[in-house]
Design a protein around this nucleic acid. Sequence first.
DNA 1: CCGAATCCGGCATGATACTG
DNA 2: CAGTATCATGCCGGATTCGG
Lengths: 219, 219
Amino acid sequence: MNNRTYGQNCGLARALDILGDRWTLLVLRDLGMGPRRYKDLAAGLPGIGTNLLASRLKGLEEAGLIERTVLPPPAPVAAYALTSAGEELRPVLGQLAAWGFRHGAPFDAEDMTRLEWLIQGLFARIAPEAADRFGGVVQFSVGGESAWIGPAADGVRLRPGQAPTLPKISLNTDVPTLLAVVNNDIDLADAFESGAITVEGNDGELESFISAFSPARIG
Amino acid sequence: MNNRTYGQNCGLARALDILGDRWTLLVLRDLGMGPRRYKDLAAGLPGIGTNLLASRLKGLEEAGLIERTVLPPPAPVAAYALTSAGEELRPVLGQLAAWGFRHGAPFDAEDMTRLEWLIQGLFARIAPEAADRFGGVVQFSVGGESAWIGPAADGVRLRPGQAPTLPKISLNTDVPTLLAVVNNDIDLADAFESGAITVEGNDGELESFISAFSPARIG
DNA sequence: CCGAATCCGGCATGATACTG
DNA sequence: CAGTATCATGCCGGATTCGG
C-alpha cells in the first residue's frame, strides 16, 4: 500500500499492505514468467499509466519482492525480476488464478488475451496438477504466438516462446478455439477430432494429453 | 471491483475483478471464521466506514461469494455467511496470510490484534500442516479472549471462543508473549519453561505440541 | 526510444451524520 | 442495529513532458 496500512497484526492484512494495491499482483504475475523490462510490463498491462507502474515497481523493490537486474548478454538491458520472496508468492497467485477462472467472469473474446493466460486457464479448469499428470512439456502455437508449459522443480513452469527442451507434444490452434475450450464451450477431445486443434510432429502422446486434461476422463 | 475491470482473459485478473478492492479480502477472512453480523464485521475492520462495508457486502453477494442468512435459534438475527465459492477461497487466503506473515512487516503491539490472527501466525511460521501434524484441537486463552484451532475435513479450522470438543491441549498466555513467539523473538519451548505460557489441565501433550510447532525441532 | 516524473480530471475511499 | 446520504480527501488513469 502507498504507506497506507490496515494496522492489523494479521498475516493476510500484512500481505495486503504490500500487495493490495491495484495492479500490484498483475505486475508480479507478469514477472513470474521471467524478467521483464519496463516497457514490456507496460504493454502487458493496458490502462496502468506510467506513473502507477513506476510507483508499483518502486514499492515492490522496497518491499523486497523484485529487484533490478540486467538481462543476459544477448540483450544486456535493465529489467525487473522476482526475488525469492516474490517467487514464493507464485503458487499463491496460481491458486488465486485458478479460483478466478472457476468463479470469476468467463473469458470474453472482447478482452485482452495472452496465450499464457489461456494455458493457465486450461490447466486451472481441471486441476493444478494436470501438468504434472501429463508429465512433460506441452508446446502451444496459437495464431502467431507460442508458449509452453512443463514440470519444474518447484511445481509447474509456464513461459512464452519456444520451450528450451523437446516438447512431449506440440499443439496448434487459434485463440477463439482455445477460448472456447477453456470456457468449456467445446470439449477438448472434440476440438482434436474436428481439427480445430492439431498435433504437430508425433501425435503418439495425444491420448495421454487428452486423458490428463479432459475433465470427462477424470475420476 | 466496483464495475471496474482489468479486461484481461486471465484467471488472476478475473479473481481481482471481484476481490481486488480494498477491504474485500479482509471481509472474507472474517466470514471465514463463521457467519457474522454487520456490526461484528464493522467492529473487526476499524476504519472501513459503514458505506464501504455495505458496498463490499453487496458486491460479494452479487458475485456469489457470500449470502445473507439467519443465525440458528439462540440468536435468530440476520448475518452474512460464505457460500461454497467463498469457502473455496479460504485455503488461498490462508496461504496468502502465511506469505504475509513471513515476508510482510513484523507484528507490532501498536496494531490491532485478534487472537485468531496470532494463532494463524503461529501456524504460518512453521507450516500450514503444523495443525495436522499435532492432530488435535488446541485451545488458547489469552487475556480475556479465547480461540481454538483444530483439524477439519477441508483442512484446518480456526475459530474464536471455546472449542465444541475436548481439546487435546489447553494453553494460557498473554498477547505480548504470543506476539513475541509469533515474531520468533522468543523460542516456543523457552516460553513454556519460563512460565510465560502455561498448560491448563493435563500437560501430557506438551512435548507433542512443542515438537509440532517449534521450528528448531523440525527437519 | 526507453524509463520514468509531472500535471490534472474523475472516481474510489474514509469519516460523519442521519434514517428506517 | 443496519445500513444510506453526504462530503472532503486522495488515489487512480491518461496525456504530456522530460532526462538518459
